[in-house]
């Protein structure tokens, strides 16, 4: 019986039929998705913090409005994704609990600090750019609610990426200080962005099964290479450089070769030793704890008034 269900499930996947919340699915498929979707949702919510850091200091009213709208979009993405994960039988509060206890992860990139205004542009262009490459294939992922959430997310993310690039373009044409700010931000964000795609394929434990279930459609290394190819071209428009002496177009492979990634750094950041891991988690826990009385009051009010009805 179990084998039949699994076979039927795999057949559906092979025929590109979406899996829906009430359909039978292997426990491991369910758990993989919960892990991946909640991690994605947490990344959106934690990702609000490094950018939120510059709302009060945005250099013009237009930029302030753009930044606020962008961060608000990210909160919205968090909401869609938490809802998608909830269809797999986990509550949002449980997911928060996992985040706050350190059991659930979020993207390592948000453990880096935002030190200058140019970081807002660099995050839009590079971080969102890397995220989009990961996310576009997810619009076709096998789990229906996740795929549908990702379609909305991707539309907004590509908008953010263009805004980020445009913001850096203005800096790149600005004063010497602004150009320096722009280059320095690119230097700091480049390598951590390459790490966003995850460990190399031969060290990625979940890749094979996820590809078979069509949760993932491209490997980490494939996506990383795509990203390098894209950014190595776009940076020419900015007149800036990428901080990699080994970056070079390879006529044979028709791809850019690039230097060695410091995987030890990624390991450290994932283990909690990145520059801002503690700040990010403290901020999330504080928001949750400080908000407890508000949530309690809202529930108490709702309970009182539903009784009266």
């Amino acid at each position: 019986m179990g084998i039949n269900l699994e076979e039927q499930f795999q057949q559906k996947i092979d025929q590109e039929i979406k899996i829906e919340p009430k359909d039978w699915m292997p426990q491991k498929y369910r758990h993989t998705l919960i892990r991946q979707i909640s991690q994605h949702a947490h990344s959106e919510v934690v990702g609000m913090l490094p950018e939120g850091n510059w709302i009060s200091r945005a250099p013009s009213l237009k930029r302030k409005a753009i930044l606020l709208a962008k961060i608000q979009d990210e909160a919205g993405h968090g909401l869609y994704l938490y809802s998608a994960a909830e269809t797999l039988g986990i509550s949002r509060d449980e997911m928060y609990e996992q985040l706050h206890s350190g059991k659930a992860k979020y993207s390592s990139i948000f453990n880096y600090p935002t030190l200058t205004w140019a970081d807002m542009g660099a995050i839009g262009w590079l971080v969102d750019g890397a995220a989009i490459l990961n996310q576009v294939p997810l619009c076709r992922t096998s789990y229906g609610p996740y795929a549908r959430a990702m379609i909305r997310v991707c539309k907004e993310e590509s908008f953010h990426q263009r805004q980020g690039f445009e913001s850096l373009l203005v800096l790149s044409k600005g004063t010497e200080d602004q150009k320096r700010m722009c280059q320095e931000a690119i230097n700091r964000w480049w390598w951590p962005c390459l790490m966003m795609f995850g460990p190399p394929d031969d060290q990625s434990p979940n890749t094979i099964q996820s590809m078979q279930w069509k949760i993932k459609r491209f490997s980490n290394d494939e996506l990383r290479q795509k990203f390098v190819n894209m950014i190595a071209e776009q940076i020419k428009i900015l007149g800036m450089t990428l901080p990699d002496p080994d970056l070079e177009w390879n006529e044979e492979t028709m791809q850019y070769d690039f230097g060695k990634i410091n995987w030890e750094e990624l390991k450290q950041v994932i283990q909690g030793n990145g520059p801002c891991n503690k700040e990010r988690m403290d901020a999330r826990r504080k928001a949750w704890n400080d908000g407890e009385w508000v949530r309690d009051a809202a529930s108490a009010y709702a309970a009182k008034h539903s009784k009266q009805l």
């Binding site: 302030k64 608000q72 909160a75 968090g78 909401l79 901020a283 908000g291 809202a298």
Partner: peptide, 24 residues
């Protein structure tokens, strides 16, 4: 806008950020 990312509930974080955005 100082509340953005620090609100008690995600929906209300969005609501207050939206208000800040209107005000700007």
């Amino acid at each position: 806008s100082e509340w953005c990312g620090h609100g008690p509930v995600l929906e209300q974080d969005i609501a207050l950020t939206n208000i800040a955005l209107d005000q700007i």
